[in-house]
């Protein structure tokens, strides 16, 4: 499913829920909209941070640079370095999977690919400010830290088995 299809689905769902609510209880519908607006104002700076960070990171790390860089690393160092790269980068899965597929065919180790895919999706340093704001520093840092360790272990295990 592409982004636009997801977006259409979510918007249709929201619109129908809102319309149903409006007919059942106008007050509740109004209340929901006010809440949505207040939440938006509160997360606006965090969102802008995410936008600028993603622009910077994707602007500097081209796919070619990335694959050359990954290819040059192996073993635990490789896992660690790719894990960190996947943590910092923020690539949509529509691009990430074709990219990693190419890397796999180009001879990059399975474990490295698995670590990269896992940190890429599981951890977002870029979205960390938002997570901290909504759920607290300790929760966000602990969850992301544990995810990082887990991603390395997943990569290591998959490299052993596959």
């Amino acid at each position: 499913m592409s982004l636009s299809e997801t977006a259409i689905l979510i918007n249709l769902l929201t619109l129908s829920c809102l319309v149903v609510t409006w007919f059942i209880n106008r007050n509740k519908a109004r209340q929901a909209l006010v809440m949505a607006w207040r939440s938006f104002m509160k997360i606006l700076p965090s969102i802008l941070m995410v936008v600028v960070l993603i622009g910077l990171i994707l602007g500097l790390a081209t796919p070619e640079r990335l694959s050359a860089w990954l290819n040059a690393r192996s073993g635990w160092t490789g896992l660690l370095v790719t894990g960190l790269a996947g943590t910092i980068l923020h690539i949509p899965s529509i691009i990430a999977f074709p990219l990693t597929g190419t890397l796999l065919k180009a001879g990059v180790a399975v474990g490295i690919i698995a670590t990269f895919v896992t940190t890429l999706t599981m951890i977002g340093v870029v979205t960390l400010p938002l997570e901290i704001r909504e759920l607290g520093k300790r929760f966000a840092l602990l969850r992301n830290g544990l995810s990082f360790v887990a991603a390395l272990l997943i990569g290591w295990l998959m490299g052993m088995i596959l």
């Binding site: 982004l3 636009s4 997801t6 977006a7 979510i10 918007n11 769902l13 929201t14 619109l15 829920c17 809102l18 609510t21 509740k28 519908a29 209340q31 929901a32 909209l33 006010v34 809440m35 949505a36 607006w37 939440s39 938006f40 969102i47 995410v50 936008v51 600028v52 993603i54 622009g55």
Partner: peptide, 24 residues
């Protein structure tokens, strides 16, 4: 940056309204 902005513009308002409805 533009593609993320577009993504947010299409998804975020709907999600926020959905959350508002959820809490109501």
């Amino acid at each position: 940056a533009w593609s993320v902005t577009r993504e947010m513009v299409f998804i975020l308002p709907a999600v926020l309204i959905l959350m508002g409805l959820f809490s109501v």
